Simulated scan of single mutants.
Amino acid sequence: MLNALEIFTTVVVGVMVGVEFSVAFFVKAILDGLPDDSAQRGRSHGGRLLGAVMPVWYFTSLALVAVWAVAGWQDHGAGLVVTAAALLILSVIMSIVLLVPINNRGKTWTVDNRPADWKQQMNRWDRFHYVRVAVIIAAFALLVAALT
């Protein structure tokens, strides 16, 4: 049963990492290549869509890793799993403190009501997101290492 939990958790976290990596390096590049109005509209729509889905995914991932840490406490990789959980906690804190406030503003913007500094705010979100992606990649790598 523990093996199934470990594999399921690793897949769930891995897919989350893949989505966030894609947002950082592919979706951003696609949106940045669009004319200003389209880029801002795309970011607003993406903020609404992913802003609704990703919190559930982050907390589910964290809960699964916590269950794995408790259930596998005696295993040789328990320290790696606990460290991965700590990194996921850090990613959630970063999200709540740094990224969500910018996202909550950005998802309400239209071409008519966006602030003059909307691009700077989005660039700031992108920088925070790059760091968060690095954190969750590290957590994922630790989970994979714990499987071996």
Rank of each mutant, 00 (worst) to 15 (best):
V97L: 11
L90F: 10
V15D: 11
F8N: 00
H45Q: 12
W125A: 07
D36A: 11
M94E: 12
R124A: 06
V81M: 03
T108W: 10
R114F: 02
S61G: 15
A138H: 02
G14K: 05
G106L: 07
D117C: 00
N123Y: 14
V65F: 03
R105M: 11
M54R: 00
T9S: 08
R105C: 06
L143N: 04
S44R: 08
V70R: 14
H76R: 14
A71W: 06
F140I: 02
T10N: 04
V65R: 05
G51A: 04
S91G: 06
P115M: 01
R127Y: 15
D112M: 02
M54K: 04
A66H: 03
S91C: 04
W125R: 05
S44A: 05
L88V: 11
G46S: 06
D32L: 13
L50Q: 01
P115A: 00
L88K: 02
K28P: 06
S22A: 15
V67D: 04
A139C: 08
D36T: 11
N123I: 14
L64D: 02
A78R: 04
G18K: 05
V12Y: 08
A134P: 03
V27Q: 12
Y130P: 14
N123T: 14
M94T: 14
S38G: 08
D37N: 04
H76I: 06
G77L: 12
L147S: 07
I102Q: 13
V53W: 04
L50I: 04
F21E: 00
L64A: 01
T83I: 13
W125H: 01
I136W: 12
S95Q: 09
L49Y: 09
V15Q: 14
K119W: 13
A85C: 14
I89V: 09
M122K: 15
N104S: 06
G42T: 05
V82R: 11
L98Q: 05
F140L: 07
I102E: 02
A63E: 03
Y130S: 07
L2N: 04
H129M: 14
T9K: 15
A141R: 08
R114T: 12
N3T: 07
G106C: 15
S38N: 12
L90Y: 08
E20I: 13
E6G: 10
G72R: 09
G79Q: 05
L34N: 13
P55Y: 01
R124P: 03
W125G: 02
P55T: 05
L80D: 14
A146R: 01
R132P: 00
H45W: 06
P35M: 11
A145V: 09
F21D: 06
L87P: 13
V23H: 02
R48M: 05
I96G: 11
A146C: 10
V53H: 09
N103I: 12
L50R: 05
K107H: 14
T10E: 00
V19A: 13
R105W: 14
V144Q: 06
T10H: 00
L142P: 03
G18N: 01
L34C: 02
V53E: 15
W109Q: 15
V27N: 00
G106R: 10
G106S: 13
A145Q: 07
P115E: 00
A4V: 07
V131P: 11
A78K: 06
E6W: 14
Q121A: 09
A84W: 00
F59K: 07
P35H: 13
D32M: 06
I137E: 10
R41Y: 08
E6R: 13
M94Q: 13
G47H: 11
L80Q: 01
D37H: 11
